[in-house]
Each structure stands twice: as C-alpha cells, then as structure tokens.
Design a binder for these strands. Sequence first.
DNA 1: GATTGGATCGCCT
DNA 2: GGCGATCCAATCG
Length: 194
Amino acid sequence: MDKGNMPQEFYCSPADVVARRLLGKELVHHSAQGVTSGIIVETEAYMGPGDDASHSAKSKTRRNATMFGSAGRAYVYLIYGIHYCFNVTTDCDEVPSAVLIRALQPKLGLDLMRQRRRKDNLTQLCSGPGKLAQAMAFSMDLDGCSMLSDQLFARPGIAVNEREIVITTRVGISKAIALPLRFYLSGNAHVSVK
DNA sequence: GATTGGATCGCCT
DNA sequence: GGCGATCCAATCG
C-alpha cells in the first residue's frame, strides 16, 4: 500500500525549497518496457512571475499550462525541437512554478537506460536534462501526470547533508542569469556541469 | 504571416 | 569551441 512515495505536501513549497529537498530522492518511472530509476543529484528552480527565465513568467499557454496547475505533477516540454525536459510542479495553486530535474545517478533499469540512450558509460546515461529524459522515457505523454501515481513518483533515496549541496546559477538561460537557483550534490560524477 | 531564439546534445574540427 | 538538428511560441510587421 504505502510505497514510501513523497506525499503531496512535499511539493507544496516554493520551487527553490523543493529543488533542494529533491536532492538525494529516488525518481522512479514504471513504463511499458520496465522500471527505471535514479537518485536526483542536480536540480534547478523556476519560480514563476518575477523569474524571467521561467516559462511561467508570463501568461498561461498550452505549452506551460501544467505549471499553472497543482503541485506534484510532471511538467514535460520539448526543447530545441529535439529533447524533452522533465520538471515537477511546486508551490500553491496560485504560483506557477517548477523544478527542472537536470541529472540523476542511475539506480534501477540500467540496461534499459543503456538501450534507450545507446550509450554504455554510466555517467553518460543521465548527466543532463535531455539525457535523463531519454533514459527514463519521459516524453509529452507524461506531461500533467501526478507524482503520486503508481507509474511515476519520488521516494527517499540517499541521505543528503546541507553542506554537500552546491548552489550556483542556472544553465543555458539568457534572462535572470544571476539568480542562485541551481543545486547539485558536491563531487557527484553524474552532475551535468561542475 | 514570417522570423527568431530557446531550461540541449552529440558530432565535428 | 562550433554547429546542426528541428518544434513551439513570442515578437515583430
């Protein structure tokens, strides 16, 4: 019954708080091909109005609609016409915000990940948002999916000490570039950019 | 209606 | 270090 999933309340805080909170948690996806999972080692917070780098800085569109919904849902979008980015919505209903999952330390379903990625090296499987989306089979059909569901959820993984968390600026954006909203586990081999 | 740039990656030099 | 792949929506006109 209780699989130890993180509950709804886990996601109902500001994105920067949830971004730190997600580090060390295990992200699990049950797909038709099998189960894959990984320990979250790198995240970025996208806060909403006031954060010009966020998709939800402006009005609601079909693409960003999920960010305007309830917390604890997958927000998936296509970037550069090629790659998917996987986010988890956060905060109360009035605040459209999310956490981008940027890197995982692969745990379950390693062979399935290798097959999907067409790479063998462990550190090449999930060391970036586009990579982990491919390895975990995250695509548009998961947009809006609840993180409290059976097929997609987060659960406790490894213990993380606050001192292990490195805080830096976000990657690949052109607006609000100075905000310290990227978080990763110090020294972890799977982080996308050290 | 057309243009442009983006929360990326992998291959090329 | 540079560039092509290729979709969506914001910005221009």
